[in-house]
């Protein structure tokens, strides 16, 4: 428990000149930004613009070709830096371990790091599942859950870690509007409760404008703009306007030949 309770403050993240290519195709073309402590920072942009790759760099799953990522001023490439910070990521697919039950998935971090006795872990798991509206599903297998339920279990798994930095990859995709609101509320609740720094990658404009302190618009591996939700909404750049104000307008008079 001592390990778990240490470093309870939130962290800042700085990204400097981040570049990454896959098979010679540049995906990130020199990103520079800072995420402040306890901030909800939303990254928006079209599909394939490099948002998820950026998240993987921040959590250390990818190594940059150039540039660096600092957490509280220390490069994550330095040995031991990643071990000092409690981070969690809610994957787009959930990424639950299919060989474990829902309860074992949610309690995995505590079990593997031996942070609490088993009866405590069972209680924490039950509480986390209740928060995401999945009370009593501890013994179910992930294969029995819908896509949205898997994502909520993944969120419960992240909550258990009590992270200082949490990354969400498309947290509301595949969710019905009511559950999307629940997840958005939980992002904000978690921030209020623990002052966690949150980085959210999403296409969901309602979520972005609802939870963000600041929004970054990214396109083709470059940052187009960073600002508050209001600044983004009122920005004059045509690309940003097109992305933010895109509407579904179908010509209903057209018929298929």
């Amino acid at each position: 428990m001592s390990d778990h309770s240490k470093n309870s403050h939130s962290v800042s993240v700085q990204v400097h000149g981040l570049r990454k290519s896959f098979d010679g195709v540049p995906v990130l073309r020199g990103l520079d930004f800072e995420v402040h402590r306890s901030e909800v920072f939303v990254i928006m942009g079209p599909s394939g613009s490099g948002k998820s790759v950026l998240l993987k760099h921040i959590i250390g799953l990818e190594i940059p070709d150039q540039g660096e990522i600092l957490i509280d001023g220390e490069s994550i490439q330095k040995p031991g830096v990643m071990d000092k910070v409690r981070m969690a990521m809610v994957f787009q697919s959930g990424a639950l371990l299919n060989s474990l039950t829902v309860g074992e998935n949610v309690g995995l971090y505590l079990t593997e790091h031996r942070l609490r006795p088993p009866e405590d872990i069972a209680r924490v798991v039950a509480e986390s599942l209740e928060v995401v509206g999945l009370k009593g599903l501890e013994n179910r297998s992930p294969s029995e859950l819908s896509g949205g339920m898997k994502k909520r279990v993944a969120l419960a798994r992240a909550l258990v870690i009590e992270p200082q930095l949490i990354l969400y990859d498309e947290p509301t995709s595949e969710l019905d509007p009511l559950m999307a609101v629940t997840i958005a509320e939980e992002i904000l609740n978690l921030k209020r409760r623990t002052q966690v720094t949150s980085i959210v990658v999403s296409h969901d404009r309602d979520l972005a404008f609802g939870v963000a302190d600041r929004i970054a618009i990214i396109n083709e591996g470059k940052i187009l703009f960073i600002g508050t939700p209001n600044e983004v909404k009122n920005h004059s750049d045509p690309l940003i306007k097109k992305f933010i104000h895109a509407e579904l307008t179908l010509d209903r008079t057209r018929t298929t030949p």
Binding site: M82, D83, L108
Partner: peptide
């Protein structure tokens, strides 16, 4: 990847 993000 999920294991690695949990420092496992």
């Amino acid at each position: 990847d999920a294991l690695r993000t949990m420092n496992i």
